[in-house]
Design a protein around this nucleic acid. Sequence first.
DNA 1: TCTTCCATGTAACGCGTTACATGATTTT
DNA 2: AAAATCATGTAACGCGTTACATGGAAGA
Lengths: 179, 179
Amino acid sequence: MPSTLGYALLGLLARRPRTGYELSRAMREPVGFFWTARHSQIYPELAKLEDAGLIGGKVEHGPGPRENRRYSIRAAGRRALAQWAASSTPPEPSRSVELLKIYSLWLADPAGARDILREQREQHRATLERYDALAAEFADAGPLEPGSADFLDAASVQRGRSVERAVVDWFDWLLGELG
Amino acid sequence: MPSTLGYALLGLLARRPRTGYELSRAMREPVGFFWTARHSQIYPELAKLEDAGLIGGKVEHGPGPRENRRYSIRAAGRRALAQWAASSTPPEPSRSVELLKIYSLWLADPAGARDILREQREQHRATLERYDALAAEFADAGPLEPGSADFLDAASVQRGRSVERAVVDWFDWLLGELG
DNA sequence: TCTTCCATGTAACGCGTTACATGATTTT
DNA sequence: AAAATCATGTAACGCGTTACATGGAAGA
C-alpha cells in the first residue's frame, strides 16, 4: 500500500510517463495545488513504487553525473490508484498558520494588524489571479469531456478559484469592519 | 521561540487560564478549525512553554492518579504571541487527500465516482451546518467590538462558512456536469 | 457492572523539511 | 564569468499520529 505521496506520483504517471525531475516540478504546480513534495522525498518514493511493481523505469542518459530514469505506470499501479481514488476520505483537519495568527491578532496594535491583514489579502489575490489565468487557458482550449483527466484538471482549478475568491472576499469584509 | 503549536496554546491561554485537558478539548473545536493537536503533543509542549517562562502553572487536585495544573499566560508569553500574530505568513501549500483522489477519479468507474463525490459533498455540507450553527450563536449574542477576541472568534467562523459554502457549491456543479 | 468522561503522561514510528553533495548544460 | 536550470541522490531533525499506560468519578 503506497503512501499518499505514492498515490500522488501514480496520479501523475497515469497521465503520462515522466522522470523524477519532471515529477518534482509537477509537484509544485499542477498537483502542487493540493499536494506538494520535495525531490528528496520523491526519489526514494519512486524506488518503493518500483519495488512494489506499480511503476517501471527505463534508463535514459541525460545531462549530469548520474543516469536518469523515465517511469511509466504499470497495470497493477493503475488498478491500485483507481481503487484508492474511489475510496472515501475522512474529514480532514485544516491547518492554517495564517488563521491561527489572526486568532491572536487582537493582542497586536491595530495599525500593525491592518497592515498584516492587507498583506495576506494581497497574497491570496495573487493566488486567485494564478487560478484565473489557468481557468482561462482551459476555456480557450475548448469544451472538455466530463469525466476525462483534462476535465478533472480544469475542475481542480475551478475549486481553487472558488475557495480563493471566498477568502479574498472575507479579507475585504474583515478589513472593512476594522475600519 | 515556540513552535506553531506553542503559539496555538498561547492563543488559547491569552483568553483565559486552562488545564492541559481543557486545552486538548479546545484544540478540537474552536482552534481545531485551523489547528489541531492530540494530548500527547500538548503536555510536552506545555512543559516547554513553562520552561521558557511564557506560561505559569498552578497545581490543583482533581480526579485521577496525577495532580493537574492550570496554566496562565505570562507577560512574556503575551508579548511573544502579539509579535508572532503580527508577523507575515508565507503562502501555505494546501494538502488535500480529497482533491488528490478526485484528480485520479477518471480511472474509476463512473457510478463509483459519483457515489464518492456525493459522500464527500455530504461531509462538507455537515461541516457547513456546524459553522452556520456557530455563526447563529454569535449573532444571538449581540454585536461584537471589532478587534476584540470575540470578534475574531466570530470572524474565523465566517471564514470557515464562506470556504465550505464554496466547496459545497463546487461539488454541486461537478456532480451536475457528470450528469 | 459497564461504559464514558475526566486527566496526564511516555514511546515508537512515519512523513516532510532542510541541508549536504555532485556535476553538466544553458542563459545572462 | 556567473547564475540559473537540469538532474539525482543521502542524512539529520522535528512535528504529528498511534499506541501504551494508569486510574478516579459519574452515569447508564
